[in-house]
Write a protein that binds this DNA or RNA. Structure first.
Length: 699
RNA sequence: UGCGAGGUAGAGCAGAGGUAGCUCGUCGGGCUCAUAACCCGAAGGUCAGAGGUUCGAAUCCUCUCCUCGCUACCA
């Protein structure tokens, strides 16, 4: 421990094309946050770095499909992701983004330094090109018929139906996933990093020097290194990303896996002018928290880059976690099989610590694990409510009933073995939690913390102060025993706040509030002592730290998941579901910017009746409607043909935006817009609950 | 296909040659300060399967099966 004087902790940069889900939290962000909070409690000099990864081909493709810009996509998800982390108490010192100027400069400089030192080789290769969209295509974005099983939607790198690994050449009838065009080969030049040159060094630094790394991490690295490394392209053909800082490099950007980890450096620069202390001094302990899919990049490629560039510290550890499943199935963003953090926060307000607790205790530290809502409820009800919350509550209640609401004194003359055992128990727990945390065994640390509460309950049960209080004739001597017991219970409660703080910071603060102590009590050095609450202090009224979760709430969550399955089912029969290719089923709802009443008042909303409806020729989605708004009849073109037949909507009342600037669609001028509610892809008319006169205003 | 990690009680995990353990659930009992919470006790395992080494194997070796990841242009 003495070896390091400061800590630099990073958590994988989430990719900004979707919100974060519980798998992200369990695998990476919660362990990282626990570690960081523990270090801060020990008053260590620590910086916790995070941010979104905003480059890469998938974002550009998504933008193309949604007819928007990559920037719009990353802006949207940066906000959602950042808000989710903040609300969950993931205590980043900075949560930056790789689209920021400082990152562009840092990455470009990093590349340039390596370039100037002659550490890249250039190679020309032939890549598939989409002539319609004018972009190079990654293998993944070429679709064709699988030569093995005949699946017509096999990807250029793999067939999802038979699992066979493919190359685009093998596909029968290959076409671009973006435009359906037949891809052509085109020559392109890229800068490669010869990773094989770093092999001897990697063997020494990683294989010999870091045998203490987790099995899954070490094993995978060893396998890569032993099988021989190759040159790897560090640039791509794209116009979204960090421009290659060289002449004649138009249309070339840095490979996202080159720039993303440099994001840790840029974010630190953005955070503090002393960034170099954290990145360049040998007495800094750098730890990367990631999921198992990121192992080679963080353990082999990025360290090789740092080594090649020179002047940077290398990771001391990369405690990668495995994956979290959900109700027995893999979490899937595209199939919407996930518990989204932003939705959890809405559905379970102020219950961040429940999720933090459950995800930590079921974290996939050594193998993939399963999250189920039933387990979530059980752990909350049995462990948090039954054990922890209950101990604190009964301590507070008894203290009020039997000790006048004040911290009772210790009476040395009646102290017994059980009282004396409390201090060593707390000290042993502190030691065990420290050992576990410093070795990245978070589940174990959490269990030790809960064990303290369990010991507290047992102690209280053995002393039975409520029995002693029932014999008034012995009041004088019994009160001393009661005092000792509750004094100890209160000290245990205070210790619990310190122990719980890294895992459940919101709960730790609640305990501080109950005990009327300041947050500084949570400093780690205070753990394992018995002078945290002062004799004679009057404390607050008892409060439950956690409450049971009703069955209906759990059922609602399970139903919500099952509904996504049902929604996906029709696509599954017939043609194979284009799972990853489909636009994510979830449209996260980012709240729009606040507006003033005047902005709202500009809208002219009116109720109208549809008096005519017909399909627009050569357009699958459009219906041409004639809407009667009392004073006049408006022609409106509406994109609802997939949802309604013309004949079934004639006579319906609708809400019309009457002062929207007219717009021509398919040659027809649309004079307004009809309000629709969207429920998971299903459209529903927004109209008055009762029929009103055509032209009635809406406000 | 190859490589890596994992497979231990209903669930989640620990144990790395010497009597299979912890938390939760289940069952039985106790208690009443505490939200049927708390405390005590019990049941529940051919340690994925097969073979081998050994006085002795969950643990070491060989083979097989299952899950997940990586397999170098998904990020």
């Amino acid at each position: 421990m003495a070896k390091f004087n400061r800590y630099l902790i990073t958590a994988a940069l989430p990719y900004a094309n979707g919100p974060v889900h519980i798998g992200h939290l369990a695998g990476c962000y919660i362990p990282a946050d626990i570690y960081v909070r523990y270090l801060r409690a020990k008053k260590a000099d620590v910086k916790f770095i995070g941010g979104t990864d905003e480059h890469g081909v998938p974002i550009t493709i998504r933008a193309m499909k949604e007819n928007t810009t990559p920037q719009a996509i990353v802006d949207k998800y940066y906000k959602i992701i950042n808000d989710s982390f903040e609300a969950m108490g993931i205590s980043f010192d900075i949560f930056s983004r790789t689209s920021r100027e400082i990152h562009h400069k840092t990455s470009a400089d990093f590349f340039l330094k390596m370039y100037n030192d002659g550490l890249f080789e250039t190679r020309e290769s032939e890549q598939y090109f989409d002539e319609v969209k004018q972009v190079f295509l990654a293998d993944r974005y070429i679709i064709g018929t699988c030569p093995n099983c005949g699946n017509e939607r096999a990807y250029g790198d793999q067939c999802e139906v038979c699992g066979r690994t493919l190359s685009p050449e093998e596909l029968i009838n290959p076409r671009s996933a973006l435009s359906d065009a037949v891809p052509v080969k085109r020559k392109t030049t890229h800068w490669y990093m010869p990773l094989q040159n770093y092999e001897p060094w990697l063997k020494e630094w990683l294989l010999d020097g870091h045998k203490e790394w987790k099995n899954n991490v070490y094993g995978q690295c060893k396998s890569w290194i032993d099988s021989g490394l190759q040159s790897r392209a560090m640039t791509r053909d794209s116009n979204w990303g960090i421009k290659v800082p060289l002449p004649d490099a138009e249309g070339k950007v840095l490979y996202v896996w080159f720039d993303a980890p440099i994001g840790y450096i840029s974010a630190t620069k953005e955070l503090t002018p002393n960034w170099a202390d954290y990145w360049c001094k040998e007495d800094t302990k750098l730890v990367h928290f990631i999921g198992k899919d990121n192992i080679v990049f963080h353990c082999i490629i990025f360290p090789s880059m740092l080594k090649a560039h020179g002047g940077f510290v290398l990771p001391d550890n990369v405690p990668a976690n495995e994956f979290l499943n959900l109700e027995g199935e893999k979490i899937s963003t595209s199939r919407n099989w996930a518990v989204w953090v932003d939705e959890y926060l809405q559905d379970f307000p102020d219950q961040q610590d429940v999720l933090r607790y459950v995800l930590c205790s079921t974290a996939p530290e050594t193998k993939d694990n399963d999250f189920t809502w039933k387990d979530f409820q059980d752990r909350n009800d049995n462990e948090l409510v039954g054990n922890l919350s209950n101990f604190v509550y009964r301590t507070m209640v008894l203290m009020h009933k039997l000790c006048g609401g004040k911290v009772p004194p210790i009476h040395a003359d009646v102290k017994d073995d059980k009282d004396d055992a409390v201090l060593p128990m707390l000290q042993a727990a502190k030691q065990k939690i420290e050992d576990a945390l410093e070795n990245y065994r978070f589940r174990e640390a959490l269990q030790e913390m809960m064990n303290v509460s369990r010991e507290g309950n047992r102690y209280l049960q053995e002393k039975q102060p409520w029995i002693l209080a029932k014999t008034p004739e012995l009041q004088a001597q019994n009160q001393a025993v009661i005092d000792n017991c509750l004094h100890m219970c209160l000290q245990i409660t205070a210790n619990l706040a310190i122990f719980a703080n890294p895992f459940m910071p919101f709960t730790a603060k609640k305990i501080c509030h109950l005990l009327k102590v300041v947050d500084r009590m949570l400093e780690w050095e205070n753990a394992g002592t018995l002078n945290l609450v002062k004799v004679g202090y009057s404390l607050r009224a008892p409060e439950m730290l956690f409450t049971k979760i009703e069955d209906e709430k759990i059922k609602a969550q399970v139903d919500k998941l099952q509904a996504t399955k049902a929604a996906a089912a029709p696509a599954a029969n017939g043609t194979p579901a284009p799972a990853k290719d489909a636009a994510p089923a979830k449209e996260a709802v980012a709240p729009k910017a606040e507006i003033q009443y005047d902005d709202f008042a500009k809208l002219d909303l009116r109720v109208g009746t549809i008096i005519q409806a017909e399909k627009v020729e050569k357009a699958d989605k459009l219906l041409k409607l004639l809407v009667d708004i009392g004073t006049e009849k408006r022609t409106v073109v509406s994109g609802i043909a997939m949802h309604f037949k013309p004949e079934e909507i004639v006579g319906k009342q609708v809400t019309l935006v009457a002062n929207l600037a007219p717009r021509k669609m398919r040659g027809i001028e649309s004079q307004g817009m009809i309000l629709m509610a969207e429920d998971n892809g299903k459209l529903v008319f927004v109209n008055p609950a009762e029929v009103v006169a055509p032209g009635s205003g809406v406000s």
